[in-house]
């Protein structure tokens, strides 16, 4: 398994919408490299025929009836929002100004 570079960390931070500072990038690059090399041992443990466990307890077909439940009060919800307008959540421009 490869080591992780500062550029990769920057790319991952962007994917995760984290505007990390240069200092954070430096720290994280070193720390993540240590962490990833520590967990690298995992690569050789399990054979191909081992099925992955995604759920600790095996259940299937947990479904609910198509019955209406309670919705929230809009005013309560919008009051907790950073910005609202006309019964809707107000969010900043989706595209940059120059786009």
């Amino acid at each position: 398994m490869s080591t992780i570079t500062r550029d990769e960390v920057a790319h991952l931070a962007h994917l995760a919408r984290l505007a990390v500072t240069d200092d954070e990038l430096d720290t994280f690059a070193v720390q993540l490299d240590v962490i990833l090399s520590s967990v690298a041992s995992i690569a050789d443990v399990a054979a191909d025929d081992i099925l992955p466990t995604t759920h600790a307890v095996p259940l299937t077909n947990v479904l609910r009836a198509d019955e209406p439940g309670t919705s929230l009060n809009r005013d309560t919800v919008l009051l907790a929002a950073p910005a609202a307008e006309g019964g809707r959540f107000r969010v900043p421009r989706i595209l940059d100004a120059q786009e």
Binding site: D66, P68, G69, S71, L72, R74, R88
Partner: peptide, 27 residues
């Protein structure tokens, strides 16, 4: 055209007042 949403009991309706069919799950 189900009565409720995929993963919660909010009405799956078209044309209602904005943000009236919302709950912790679908929000």
């Amino acid at each position: 055209g189900t009565r409720t949403k995929m993963f919660c009991g909010c009405a799956a309706a078209f044309g209602d007042e904005p943000n009236t069919n919302i709950c912790p799950v679908c929000l």
